[in-house]
């Protein structure tokens, strides 16, 4: 194989490879943390639910616990997928495809985000059932939960507008330019 002696003068590959390997390791650590949530936190909610049911014999505790377990499982799986998609951009795609993916990635609302609604609704159901036990009004619970979600969405949109909208707009402009003729 042809090697390039100039390369060693241009950049030292060994520290770079160490850095890249470290980044791969960090990714693995984050994935493990999410798996930890999946394998430890979800069964933990299950155990707490069973204990609560044994103490109170209240079937609501079971429904609420199952909703929470399903919700956290859904969030854990979604997070892993999203993290991979956002962290690793494939630069080896043809330019037009890479730019189209960037436009899609930096859209504030995407069809697949609807999937996150399912765990959120499950958490809402669990919270509503739990708080109903404490005589909290349904209206207050809904206003509190969806208000908090709305607040998060607004913060997210502000961040998107400042940080990601310019990237999305520029990628969109380049796509239009490439497809122009």
């Amino acid at each position: 194989m042809k090697t390039d002696n100039e390369n060693s003068n241009y950049t030292d590959l060994n520290p770079l490879i160490s850095k890249l390997k470290k980044e791969d390791t960090n990714y693995a650590v984050i994935v493990r943390a999410v798996q930890f949530m999946y394998w430890i936190f979800v069964p933990f909610i299950g155990i707490m639910t069973v204990r609560e049911y044994m103490d109170s014999s209240n079937v609501i505790a079971i429904i609420s616990g199952v909703c929470n377990m399903l919700a956290f499982t859904g969030l854990a799986l979604s997070f892993r997928k999203y993290y991979y998609e956002y962290k690793f951009v494939d630069y080896s795609l043809p330019t037009i495809q890479m730019l189209k993916k960037a436009v899609h990635r930096y859209q504030p609302f995407q069809k697949k985000s609807i999937r996150v609604l399912v765990p959120l609704i499950l958490i809402d159901v669990a919270l509503t059932l739990d708080w109903m036990e404490d005589d909290t009004s349904l209206f207050f619970t809904q206003a509190f939960f969806w208000g908090a979600i709305l607040f998060g969405v607004i913060i997210g949109l502000i961040l998107w507008y400042v940080r990601y909208k310019p990237i999305r707009d520029e990628a969109q402009r380049l796509v239009r330019e490439i497809e122009g003729e």
């Binding site: 194989m1 042809k2 090697t3 390039d4 100039e6 390369n7 241009y10 590959l13 490879i17």
Partner: peptide, 9 residues
């Protein structure tokens, strides 16, 4: 390493 060696130019 092989890709970089072959394509650095």
């Amino acid at each position: 390493n092989a890709i970089v060696a072959e394509n650095s130019t």
